[in-house]
Every structure is written in structure tokens, then in C-alpha cells.
Amino acid sequence: MISRYGKEYLEKLNRYLEKLPDDERMDAVMEIESHIAEGIANGVPEAVILSRLGDPRKLAKAYRSERLNGLKGMKSLKDVFAVIGFYCTAGLLSVMIVPVLATVAYGFGFCAVLIVIAGILRTFGAAWINMSIGPGMEIATEYSMIYALVVGGIVGGIAFASWLGLKKYLAFLSERYRRVLPGKHTVHG
């Protein structure tokens, strides 16, 4: 069990890490808390563990510099502009491409299913369902299913193509993200 001194140490560390994003700060504090608890469970006195960790201000500085270490991977101004360019273009394009492709994929997919259901219902006598090619060109009831399958197939094809496009765009974006970030060229699985 961590004593009052250990908790004070963790509180100081938390304060010194205030410039980090909340999730990273909490991860760092939880990591140190886990380290202290593990040491105590293994019979190491808490005072020894805290002295090995050193001043919480220096430990926080080490965490912050580790976080910024990725920026050292940027060897040139070209690397900096590559990162800036990625975020500017990917962000602007994604605001347009992702919602449009997702809406078309799921909206048209849903409509394709509804069209086929309407064809089935009309074939079995639902006279309230209208199917026409154009003004005054009503589809005969006996051809409702064929018409629904053809139109549903076309609409479903558009949905599927949009879904594939969205999937490929997100994969492309992920790959570009991995390439642009310094020191992040490998994928951990």
C-alpha cells in the first residue's frame, strides 16, 4: 500500500506534468504509481523506491522530453513542412471526403435494401408502392421484382463502391500518417 509520502510524490509529479495532455499525464502518473506498488509488493521499502525515482520535477522533465523526443526525428525543415502539409491537406480533405463517402455508402446501402423489399411487397400485392421509370411510365406489377433487383443492384453497387473508396482513403491516410511522423515508421500489432 502506497503511503502518504508516496501519494504526495505522485501529486507533485502530476503537477509538474501539467503541460502534457491529460491522457498522457495520467498514463505517466499511473505508470509510476504501478512501479511504486510493484516495488512495495516485492519487499522494497517505499523510501528506497522514491529515492531511486529521484526528484518528481526531474522525473516529469524526463517524461516531457521523452514526449518531445519524436520531434528530434525531424532532421530538416523539409520534415517539418511534410508534417505540416500532411495535417493541412489531410484535415481539409477528410472533412469533405469522409462524411460524403460514409453518407453515400450507408445511405445508398440502406436504400438498396428498401428497394428490394419494396419490389417484394409490390410483387405480392402492395398496390400502394409505386414503381415507375418516368412520368406516366409505371412498371407492371409482375416486373416489380426484376425492376427492384436491377435498381437495388445499381444503388447497392454505388454504396459498395463508396464503402471501398472510404476504406481505401482511410488506409491511404493511415499510411501517410505513419510515413510523416518522425520515429513512427513501424506498425506495432
Rank of each mutant, 00 (worst) to 15 (best):
F110E: 04
A126K: 12
L77P: 11
I84R: 01
L77D: 15
T89F: 03
L77S: 14
I115P: 07
K75G: 14
I84S: 00
G107S: 11
V104S: 03
V80S: 10
Y87Q: 07
T103G: 15
L93R: 14
N130R: 06
V116N: 01
V104N: 01
A126S: 13
L93H: 11
T89K: 01
A82G: 02
K75R: 15
G109E: 00
K78M: 04
F86E: 08
A118P: 09
V116R: 01
L101K: 05
D79R: 01
K78T: 07
P99W: 02
A126P: 02
S76T: 10
V95K: 14
W128G: 13
A118E: 02
A90F: 03
R122P: 06
V80W: 12
A102P: 08
L77C: 08
T103W: 05
A118T: 02
T103F: 11
L121Q: 09
K75D: 10
F81Y: 10
D79E: 07
Y106P: 00
G125N: 08
D79M: 01
S94T: 05
I117S: 03
V83A: 09
G109P: 01
T89P: 00
F108Y: 12
L101H: 11
A102G: 15
L93C: 13
L101P: 07
I120D: 02
F86Y: 13
F108V: 02
L114I: 02
A112F: 03
G91V: 03
G125W: 12
G109V: 00
T103C: 11
K78E: 15
K78R: 14
L121H: 05
G85I: 03
I84D: 04
L92Q: 11
A90H: 05
N130M: 07
V104A: 10
